[in-house]
């Protein structure tokens, strides 16, 4: 099996409720991989399973080595950054403190300071609000903080769970463009979970459709966009 991130036969759920029924997935290094699917398909559960937040069976390998199970802090230290659904904001901490938590595992202080400035370069509004409590920011700004926090870990793999949720279309587009920029400039591999299929397929290299806990369809983003089933179910095209 080749691939930067390889997932095979992944099962996961919550207590007795099984949600993922054997997910197989390969993500190549440096690509933006979209995971589409209806509400409740298990997209969030898949990301949680990848980063060890819930119990799983099956294999998850990053760059050829198994990721630790049930220990999200250890997975993070292996270079996986996860922007969770709901953004995971540390509300009482300032914007800058939120970013510094993202750099928690790093020791290179000077480089961290430079990376914080780089995030302010991507999102100037965060620079202006660096001393403000992150919980007082708008939803879009908090999503920027979450992305910035993830980038400060200097990850090799970035997992994003519905970053567009609750954001105005323009803000979403701006956010996606930054994600694309980071992906290109740093060869950062991105797994992007979304319900917003239109915009996502425009930005992604490859796409996978998750339906009731299984991958129902995979392919290059353009091919997936052209697929009849996807067009009908997720793009609101055709009949």
């Amino acid at each position: 099996m080749s691939g930067f991130l390889t997932v095979a036969g992944l099962h996961a759920g919550y207590g007795a409720g099984r949600v993922l029924h054997g997910v197989d997935l390969t993500v190549e290094e440096g690509e933006v991989c979209a995971i589409l699917g209806p509400n409740g398909a298990g997209k969030t559960t898949l990301l949680r399973a990848l980063c060890g937040l819930i119990r799983t069976t099956g294999t998850v390998r990053l760059d050829g080595a198994d990721l630790p199970r049930n220990r999200p802090e250890a997975v993070a230290r292996r270079g996986v950054a996860h922007v969770p659904e709901g953004r995971g904001t540390f509300a009482p901490l300032t914007v800058e403190e939120n970013l510094r938590v993202g750099a928690y595992t790093r020791r290179d202080r000077a480089a961290v300071a430079a990376d914080i400035d780089r995030v302010y370069g991507y999102f100037p509004v965060l620079g202006k609000r660096r001393g403000q409590a992150a919980g007082s920011l708008s939803g879009g700004e908090q999503q920027m903080v979450a992305l910035g926090r993830a980038l400060l870990a200097r990850p090799r793999l970035l997992l994003l769970d519905e970053p567009s949720l609750g954001l105005a279309p323009l803000v979403t587009r701006e956010l996606f463009e930054i994600i694309r920029t980071v992906n290109r400039d740093e060869r950062l591999t991105v797994v992007l979970v979304e319900q917003n299929a239109h915009l996502t397929l425009e930005f992604a290299d490859r796409a996978h459709v998750l339906e009731t806990g299984r991958i129902a369809l995979s392919g290059a983003a353009d091919d997936v966009r052209a697929d009849d089933r996807v067009a009908r179910s997720y793009l609101g095209i055709g009949g």
């Binding site: 937040l53 999200p72 950054a81 995971g88 901490l93 870990a153």
Partner: peptide, 16 residues
């Protein structure tokens, strides 16, 4: 302080 505010999110940033 991060753990006090949001333990799950702190864990995702590698905090033990």
């Amino acid at each position: 302080r991060a753990v006090a505010s949001n333990p799950a999110s702190a864990r995702l940033s590698g905090v033990r």
